[in-house]
Design a protein around this nucleic acid. Structure first.
Lengths: 203, 203
DNA sequence: GTTTATGCTTAACGGTGTTAAGTGAAAGGA
DNA sequence: TCCTTTCACTTAACACCGTTAAGCATAAAC
């Protein structure tokens, strides 16, 4: 059983090489500005080799996004546990979300700013960003705690979560999309958004 | 001077035909899913003819966006004048903005959800969506009135405007990007977002 | 009536994601 | 050890894309 394991290990290594090359290119140049041929060139294999490891270009990106968003979910979970005051935790969680998006603009753009292609089953859609969903559920739990403790006037946990998500997504995505816009101080804008949303929610 | 005018008129008509064809295709199928060849086919001219009327595909889209966003700016201006209470006007303006985005998702997506391409001068960038900027300035004026009359605790007009913009952009863009997500009632979500943002701002 | 200018088309370039077919070396069985 | 099969990979090609250079009629100008 020697050679079989070795070959499996080598395959896994090449798979990782592909992912590494794709990540670097996607993150620095953006998904649609990177061709399969460029990725292949970087790993010094022929373009078709990539298709032996990934279904297509979208699949490649999907794997990278899951990877990246698992880290976001982990961090968010850690943060919400770290702060005993639920409102504090929520605030920090929102901050972490936005900072994550600004740090990985191309990943963020693809998962949260790209509509699903024409033909796209719902089940496939919900599984596609399961790590993103994990992060969303963290936020939901944080909101849930605030509602339970009677901090918020609005009691519909889903409504509040979605509104909060939309709010922090709004800053994140606008800052990514319009880097040349004459923003007031970015950090101040982020804080104002978070504080104001939570302030409005308070009972 | 007869034939010269006639020919100029015919050229203008063809230009409009191109715009009409492109608008319908872009709006229904999305910018990147429509090829120049498809547009040409629709108007029954060769693909290269389009380049006699527009610089490139982006220019074609740009013309359409200006056209569409001029309507948004007009509507927003009308609304803010219609309501004497500045907070009422602001609320309605936000509503109109979101509804506009949901009604023209592909236009909205291109102007507000697409980062500028690699090489892109700042001046060109600011002129590019001048009609979008007109709409933004409407919002700014609405916020300005509220601040003047002492309705808001935060006095920095630009900060508040940008936060409010990010908030309504957040709902708009998420609803466009994630149509299959299990949203709570969309209208309720929109209202919650607007009301909560303004509630948080109140002195 | 000849020449110039105009409006459009044909053909092509260099690129894209993706697939079908082929190749050469390593593994498995006798 | 030799033969066969399997496996990892490549070459060549398809069907598209945005865009441009060159050519070709027709209409205007003199």
């Amino acid at each position: 059983m020697g050679p079989k394991q070795r070959r499996a290990r080598e395959k896994e290594m090449l798979r990782q090489d592909i992912l590494d090359a794709a990540r670097e290119l996607f993150v620095t140049e953006g998904y649609e500005n990177v061709s399969m041929r460029r990725i292949a060139e970087k790993i010094e294999y022929s373009p078709t080799t990539i298709y032996l490891y990934f279904e297509d270009k979208a699949d490649l990106l999907h794997a990278l996004c899951e990877e990246t968003f698992a880290r976001l979910a982990n961090r968010t979970e850690a943060i919400t546990k770290q702060y005993p005051d639920p409102i504090d935790g929520l605030r920090r969680g929102c901050r972490a979300y936005i900072e994550f998006g600004l740090k990985h603009p191309n990943h963020y753009r693809v998962t949260f700013m790209t509509p699903p292609p024409p033909g796209f089953a719902k089940e496939h859609y919900m599984r596609e960003d399961s790590q993103g969903m994990r992060a969303y559920n963290c936020l939901r739990q944080g909101v849930g705690r605030c509602v339970e403790q009677g901090h918020f006037r609005e009691k519909d946990v889903d409504a509040v979560t979605q509104m909060l998500w939309a709010a922090i997504h709004g800053v994140t995505s606008l800052l990514i999309t319009k880097p040349l816009f004459p923003w007031v101080n970015k950090n101040a804008l982020i804080d104002l958004m978070i504080d104001n949303a939570i302030q409005g929610l308070k009972a």
